[in-house]
Simulated scan of single mutants.
Amino acid sequence: MAHIFVCQDDALSDGEAIKVDAPTAAIAVFKVNGALYALNDRCTHGNASMSEGYVEDDGTVECPLHAARFCLKTGTALCQPATEALQTFPVALVEGAIYVDVPEAA
């Protein structure tokens, strides 16, 4: 696993997301009610960036293109048109910095 620096914790406000380019995929990192989540940045239904989606206080994100909703904790697709879950990634806060763990490129 590669330990990828995202940003300083205070650079990501509650209810916001940031996109990070990792070696194997683009990752969307979210902060909701102080908790951090990381998902694959590409919607499973269409070519939309989830980091540009609508982050909800209930721990979901809505795709900005087709209004599909996903659970930030599990990546589960919660409504049509998406039926496939988004991949999730471990995310950690270490000494005031946010990191995400992603598989290393082959």
Rank of each mutant, 00 (worst) to 15 (best):
D21V: 10
D10M: 15
L12S: 12
A38G: 06
A92F: 11
V61R: 03
D14I: 12
P23G: 08
N40Y: 00
V102H: 05
V6T: 01
A97F: 13
C71I: 09
G53K: 01
E84T: 15
V32I: 14
S49R: 08
V32G: 06
L12A: 14
V29N: 03
E62F: 06
H45W: 12
L65C: 09
C63V: 04
Q87T: 11
A105K: 09
H45D: 09
S51T: 01
L39Q: 01
A92V: 09
A77W: 04
H66C: 12
T74W: 05
I18C: 12
L65G: 08
N47S: 10
V102Q: 06
V20S: 01
G96S: 10
G59Y: 04
A17K: 00
D101Y: 04
R69Q: 09
T44H: 00
A25H: 01
Y54A: 13
V61A: 06
C63F: 03
K73D: 11
T60N: 06
S13A: 15
G15S: 13
L65D: 04
V20F: 00
T24A: 07
E52N: 14
A106C: 05
M1K: 08
A82P: 02
G96Y: 11
F70M: 07
Q87E: 11
D101T: 11
T83E: 12
A68N: 05
H45A: 14
V61H: 00
I18D: 04
K31L: 13
F5N: 13
T60H: 08
F70N: 03
C43E: 03
T24Q: 08
A38L: 06
E16K: 15
Q80F: 15
T44F: 01
H3M: 14
A48Y: 05
C63H: 04
L72M: 05
V91K: 05
C43L: 05
L86I: 05
A92D: 04
A2E: 15
Y54G: 12
L93Q: 07
V100F: 01
I4C: 06
Q87K: 08
D58F: 13
T60G: 07
Q80R: 10
E16F: 13
V102N: 05
G53N: 08
A106G: 06
G96L: 11
G53D: 02
L93F: 14
E52C: 09
M1T: 14
T88C: 10
A28Q: 02
S49K: 05
G53R: 00
L78C: 09
K19V: 00
A26M: 06
I4R: 08
C63D: 03
Y37L: 13
H45S: 14
V102E: 02
C43M: 07
I4M: 14
L39S: 01
F30Q: 03
D58G: 10
T88H: 04
D14G: 15
Y54F: 15
E62D: 10
E104M: 12
P23K: 11
E62P: 07
E56V: 07
G46T: 10
I98A: 10
V32P: 06
I4V: 15
L86S: 02
A26N: 06
